[in-house]
Amino acid sequence: MIWQIELIILVLVVLFGIGALAVKDLLSAAILFGAYSFMLCLLWAIMGAVDVAFTEASVGAGISTVLFVAAVLRTTRRTDD
């Protein structure tokens, strides 16, 4: 695999992870978490774990983002800390 692409994706995973924790708006945090999952899915695919990548794409990036958005809609968009 081309290591430059791998490095870019790895940096993006870390950036999205920190962003999802740091951002004040919970809806943005949910979307950033979806982006984090998607980048992680690409990383699994690069490492040859296609089954794990498939699960990560469907569960992490797909349905859990929807569930997070639904939970944010029914609670609050602002976080206290």
Binding site: T55, V59, G62, V66
Partner: peptide, 21 residues
Amino acid sequence: SPGGGFQGGVIFGASVVLFAI
């Protein structure tokens, strides 16, 4: 091929969620 019960179940559930949205 890659896949199985977990992934297929989640995708099927997602289709119902899409219907609800």
